[in-house]
């Protein structure tokens, strides 16, 4: 039988994200952006319904994350990718391009989602906006 349904842990993670006001995105094990919540939509400047699911290279291009020195980051260069590749939590300070007001400084924390069989099926990445003095 052809599988159409996401794993339950991703379904529940998406439900969780819709219920919180912390900006957060859900990615699968390949880094594909599966969903982001309304708080993240406010941060990014466009709704998920408008953006839709994006492969890793697509959302990297769309949100153009840069490091503290302004250098562009690839997925492998964001230590958040470690949440997918090594099943470890990760924390980053990054800046991303928003649709409304240029770049936004963020702190991001990634939590791997590990299924019952011990296989990482994705990650939740939550964001906090940094203030001018570097505080979130």
């Amino acid at each position: 039988m052809e599988g159409a349904q996401r794993p339950l842990e991703l379904i529940l993670a998406r439900n969780f994200l819709t219920s919180v006001t912390t900006p957060a995105v859900l990615v699968d094990g390949e880094g594909t952006l599966l969903f982001y919540n309304e708080a993240a939509a406010a941060l990014l400047g466009r709704s998920f319904e408008e953006a839709g699911q994006m492969r890793a290279d697509e959302w990297i291009r769309a949100f153009a994350p840069v490091d503290e020195e302004g250098e562009p980051l690839e997925l492998d260069g964001i230590n958040l990718a470690g949440a997918l590749k090594s099943d470890r939590p990760a924390h980053s300070e990054i800046r991303i391009r928003t649709a409304s007001d240029g770049y936004r400084a963020l702190e991001a924390a990634a939590l791997p989602i590990v299924a019952a069989q011990g296989k990482a099926s994705g990650a939740i990445i939550m964001f906090w906006t940094r203030t001018d003095n570097g505080e979130t």
């Binding site: 349904q5 996401r6 379904i11 529940l12 819709t18 219920s19």
Partner: peptide, 13 residues
């Protein structure tokens, strides 16, 4: 967490 009316098939347990 979500109305079934709002979910695509892939997101329905």
């Amino acid at each position: 967490g979500s109305s079934l009316d709002d979910l695509a098939d892939e997101w329905i347990s």
